[in-house]
Design a protein around this nucleic acid. Structure first.
Lengths: 230, 230
DNA sequence: CACAGGTTTCGATGACCCATCGAAACGAAC
DNA sequence: GTTCGTTTCGATGGGTCATCGAAACCTGTG
């Protein structure tokens, strides 16, 4: 054997793993990916640290080199998940359009994004609710999301494009709806996430339109800005 | 002291409790009540059997005389919770009225009933989803609920009182909304459960009404049949 | 080569949790 | 007083999370 026998994994510092498999990528990312998959199947409570460790080729205690506590893994996981709706509402508001159309686009895309998550978002909420400190940034981002959504609603109500409703209560209700729905539809079931997103967007927006307004024209406006739905 | 110094607890068979307090009612009911309270505060995973036992004055292992497993307590708890929406939809259908009014009454009352539960209904769903055998009757009842709700929707669509929607998808969406909302509003927060129920009923029914129909008249019809909302 | 210092992993361990088991402590019936 | 059924307990086994010290590797320096 000469100097080169293929792209051998670069030798890493530190004690080698008992399971002598080569290390593929950043262990942190591997742990997050494995945990996402596992809690999707087994739930957070049902996913043991030893199971996660086995999945990535480590012993249980070695996980604590990368994360101090199990919840820290969950927090890192959900931090990523939180970025999507925030980014979504940001770009939708930036792109403008009528309030109903913005709302329509948000609900539709939010549902689809949530359904794509490997785990149940509500379960994570529950963990996060019991550990406000560890999930402080999560709740901060969530508050921003709520405010932005309420902002859309408020301007829609003011412009007469939406029925008169409490913007904050309605924003929270809409987010709760999106999340309540993902639990039931995220696993293929009978309906595609796309169909569910469209359905809920129809329901919510149509439910907020003032008498005499037409849902179809709102949907058409939304579709003009979301090419993938044309 | 003569023979009678008050309604003394009738002596029970069996070994006396270490904690010598008298036994008040049916231990099974006490366990259920205590568990409901505790998992409302601490979550299912956070509620130890030893904690439940301490609450009712027993040692941890004694709980297994009444329930074989922890999940059996949860199952018994949720079985009760399930009765409410089922009973609700049954009586509403029996009382008749237009489909939109039936829908309105169901959503409003369902949200209020769910918000009154001491625990997070979604967390229970998660447990139930992972143990379809232990919760078989739960899922059966749930299916009945879905079908009945879809039945209301179907007849409403057929009569032209509701927009054309997929009854089953919409029924599931509505239930998901009700449950998604309870997580966020069950603890007093800023809004009363009544306000939340009315708000979601407004949103859902208004979102399902065909163009030209009036939400106010539906709400009025619903209020006629629900005296407590007049 | 020997050795120091940093990095990554492991094994052992403690505290806690669920669930099972046999036995203990009672009332009731005979 | 003995036996039987009822209710409770303590002890125990196996599982979980999290911590700790040490092991096993790399690199750099003399």
């Amino acid at each position: 054997m000469t100097s080169d026998d293929g792209p051998r994994a670069p030798r890493r510092a530190g004690r080698p793993r008992a399971d002598a498999r080569p290390v593929v990528g950043d262990p942190t990312d591997e742990i997050l990916a494995a945990t996402g998959r596992l809690i999707g199947e087994l739930g957070i409570g049902g996913t043991a640290m030893s199971r996660i460790a086995a999945e990535v080729g480590l012993k249980q205690s070695s996980l604590y080199y990368y994360f101090r506590r199990k919840e820290e893994i969950v927090a890192a996981l959900v931090a990523r998940a939180n970025v999507v709706p925030l980014e979504l509402v940001r770009t939708i508001v930036a792109q403008g359009g009528s309030a109903p159309a913005q709302l329509y686009r948000f609900v539709r895309a939010d549902v689809i994004a949530l359904c794509a998550l490997p785990f149940d978002i509500n379960e994570v909420h529950r963990i996060a609710a019991r550990d406000t400190e560890g999930f402080a940034s999560y709740w901060k981002e969530r508050a921003v999301l709520e405010r932005r959504l309420a902002g859309i609603l408020r301007s829609g109500v003011r412009a007469g494009d939406l029925r008169t409703v409490d913007p904050r209560l309605t924003a929270l209700t809409i987010l709760a709806n999106d999340e309540g729905v993902q639990n039931w539809f995220r696993l293929g079931s009978r309906w595609s996430s796309r169909a569910v997103g469209v359905q809920l967007a129809d329901l919510v927006v149509s439910g907020l339109l003032p008498p005499g307004s037409d849902l179809a024209s709102v949907a058409a406006e939304a579709d003009r800005l979301d090419p993938e739905f044309r």
